[in-house]
């Protein structure tokens, strides 16, 4: 099992970094969306601070929807997905590793850029800390549950919009609790409860998503 996990981890990381431009696209999208908000709504710092957490989280969700298609697409087109599924190894484990790599590759740039985003939207330090905590807990949830829908739609034409339609209702509770946490931080109120709920959803996803993803792949790959 360890060699399997290591092997896939290394392979996916190498492949991801080979196509750096493709990695950068969701990030650019994120930056552009966040830049559009002050331009569209007005630069008043008070307003920006109020909508800031929501804007960043919405942009993160949209950017992750863009990036998520990559998860199984290349492996599907070159046949390695089929090989993985025929290999007799645990597809759930393989899926879990791939999601992990995908999350690392998508989330770390976001984490690096987040101080800049906080600056653009006039967030306070407390809010920024809360934002980072919600991102650390919430983005793996996005990747794990998103992967289930990606597994179902891999190989479909125009899967992208369908993916958004499928996943947005699923992401709404996460959005609500994450933005509430940051808003509470803005008011100097405790936000451990919101983080706990996101954490609980994450635990549920970590325990069950890999198997759901494996089943989804089985369905879509026949």
């Amino acid at each position: 099992m360890n060699t399997l996990i290591n092997g896939i981890f290394k392979r996916d990381m190498a492949l991801a970094f080979r196509q750096r431009s493709e990695l950068a696209q969701p990030l650019m999208f994120l930056l552009m969306v966040i830049t559009l908000f002050p331009l569209g709504i007005g630069p008043g710092p008070v307003t920006l601070q109020k909508i800031g957490p929501g804007v960043i989280w919405i942009a993160a969700i949209l950017a992750s929807l863009l990036a998520m298609e990559r998860l199984f697409r290349d492996d599907f087109w070159d046949g390695s997905l089929e090989q993985y599924m025929l290999s007799g190894q645990s597809v759930a484990a393989i899926a879990a590793v791939k999601v992990l790599v995908h999350w690392l590759v998508s989330f770390l740039p976001l984490a690096l850029f987040s101080p800049l985003l906080a600056l653009f939207l006039n967030l306070t330090v407390d809010m920024y800390i809360a934002l980072m905590l919600t991102l650390v807990l919430g983005t793996p949830l996005l990747s794990l549950v998103g992967a289930i829908a990606v597994g179902l739609t891999v190989g479909l034409q125009r899967g992208g919009v369908l993916l958004a339609l499928l996943l947005i209702p699923v992401f709404i509770p996460l959005l609500i609790f994450a933005t509430s946490a940051v808003d509470s931080a803005a008011l100097q109120l405790p936000y451990r409860a919101q983080l706990a709920i996101i954490g609980a959803m994450l635990m549920l996803a970590m325990a069950s998503a890999p198997f759901a993803i494996a089943y989804a792949l089985k369905v879509s790959q026949n």
């Binding site: 289930i148 829908a149 499928l166 209702p169 699923v170 509770p173 609500i176 369905v219």
Partner: peptide, 22 residues
């Protein structure tokens, strides 16, 4: 049918969560 079934099940788990959170 199988694919839509998976999403229906994921959705139904979400319905109480969505209600509570909203």
């Amino acid at each position: 049918g199988k694919a839509a079934g998976v999403m229906a099940l994921v959705g139904v788990v979400n319905v109480p969560i969505i209600h509570y959170s909203v």
